[in-house]
Design a protein around this nucleic acid. Structure first.
Length: 376
RNA sequence: GGGGAGAUACCAAAGCGGCCAACUGGGGCAGACUGUAAAUCUGCUGGCGUACGCCUUCGUAGGUUCGAAUCCUGCUCUCCCCA
């Protein structure tokens, strides 16, 4: 994998770049739709690619390991072939599930013991076998196995948690280096910076990951309950340490405003369930603000869903019709909501990239932040 | 014509002397959602008030009772069975 830094915006840390993977190029900054279980929920891959213009999607080690299982994915010839997506894929390691599964898991130095949320069966994830599973899945970018420290963790917990994540990282790297890709193309490995909201821990964590000279670096453990200002501060702190010539991935973030603020602070890659989950639940992000399409006020608004939108759904369907679909619980409603939101997210990062390249990012961003957070 | 059952809030449906402004569904209104255990979850849904509360409600008109959606009587309407 290669990363080319093309431009940095004036008065900002925002960067435009290009990532070259075995499955194609990725323009950065980029947003990656989440396709946890091998599907961007509710959306045909054709639309993900051609309408939404996604350049890379996510999969999840935890979910794919439990179902369909690595055997099936290997038999299919890897995840790309299994799901019919020929562009890049990034897999998350399962670290976040270890965090979000709460009381059906137990952490130890060895790894994470957990029960399947599907059938209750017991499993063990270790830094080593998580790398193995990701080799089997065959994602272009695979993630370290970490502990996603909760946003409200105290210093002592955060420090110990970080130290374990660091030891796990060493084991991940070893396993990564001693194994080979299974499908004839190379895979990249990204370590994850933890450290909760504590600057000194974040700096240590960032310095630690850079000792491994990876193809890129991720910032995890943000937007997990901490204050938004803390998140922005941690991004600044970490990015002041991470090397300029490698992509930086802010995991799990966020709202459209979060993404612009992240770009402004030098983040290149984002993923989040928000556009799909909220879209399924009737919340639409637009460049003019946020629409809750279920609200009564839209019942007789026959104007296009989003006159400024880039997706076909924005022009093909009216607000009143989409509201009707949600009222009637028609599955077309969540599908349209998801497509719209993802298309908006991809437009947002694509436009940010153009603004960076033309040197106008900062003023554009300030204007956008005011608009896109409004409630319509 | 005879016999029986019933009328509860937007709808359906519990309640059958005080703990009832009234269970529960649905519908409606609003909110939440950030590396997806989520096409999910939460709240509100007689009126006024932030709240303690106050006011008006259980077909309708009376009555019994300290107290009635709940008991009694008349009336109106609905449904079922037999002729």
């Amino acid at each position: 994998m290669k990363f080319e830094l093309q431009e940095t915006a004036p008065l900002s840390k925002a960067r435009a770049g290009k990532i070259e993977t075995a499955h194609g190029l990725i323009d950065t900054p980029i947003f990656m739709p989440v396709g946890t279980i091998g599907s961007v929920k509710g959306i045909h891959f054709q639309d993900v690619k051609e309408d939404i213009k996604a350049q890379i999607i996510l999969g999840n080690t935890y979910h794919l390991y439990l179902r369909p299982g690595t055997e099936i994915i290997e038999s299919a010839g890897g995840l790309h072939k299994f799901i019919g997506w020929d562009k890049p894929i990034l897999t998350d390691s399962g670290g976040f599930q270890v965090f979000s599964l709460g009381d059906i898991r137990k952490l130890s130095e060895e790894g994470a013991r957990f029960q399947s949320h599907i059938d209750g069966s017991r499993h063990l994830f270790t830094p080593e076998n998580v790398i193995d599973v990701q080799r089997s899945i065959g994602a272009d970018i695979i993630m370290a196995f970490d502990e996603c420290t909760p946003g409200d963790a105290d210093y002592d917990y955060a420090r110990k948690s970080l130290e374990m994540t660091q030891r796990w990282l060493g084991r991940c790297v070893s396993r990564f280096n001693e194994t080979q890709p299974k499908y004839g193309y190379s895979q990249s490995f990204f370590p994850i910076v933890q450290g909760c909201v504590y600057s000194d821990l974040r700096i240590k964590a960032a310095e630690h990951v850079t000792t491994f000279d990876s193809d890129g670096y991720a910032i995890g453990g943000l937007s997990v309950g901490e204050k938004e200002e803390d998140m922005y501060k941690m991004i600044e702190v970490v990015n002041s340490v991470l090397p300029e010539n490698k992509p930086r991935y802010l995991m799990g973030v966020g709202t459209p405003v979060n993404i612009l603020e992240g770009i402004d602070r030098g983040i290149d890659m984002f993923d989040c369930v928000m556009p799909t989950r909220n879209g399924r639940n009737g919340m639409l992000f637009t460049r003019n603000g946020i629409i809750n399409i279920k609200n009564n006020k839209w019942r007789d608004d026959f104007s296009p869903l989003d006159p400024d939108g880039t997706s076909f759904v924005d022009h093909q369907y009216s607000k009143a019709y989409l509201r009707h679909l949600f009222q009637a619980k028609e599955m077309l409603g969540p599908q349209i909501g998801s497509i719209h939101n993802l298309a908006f997210y991809l437009w947002l990062v694509g436009e940010a990239r153009q603004q960076i390249l033309s040197g106008t990012f900062k003023s554009w961003k300030e204007k956008m932040v005011k608009q896109i957070g409004k409630r319509l």
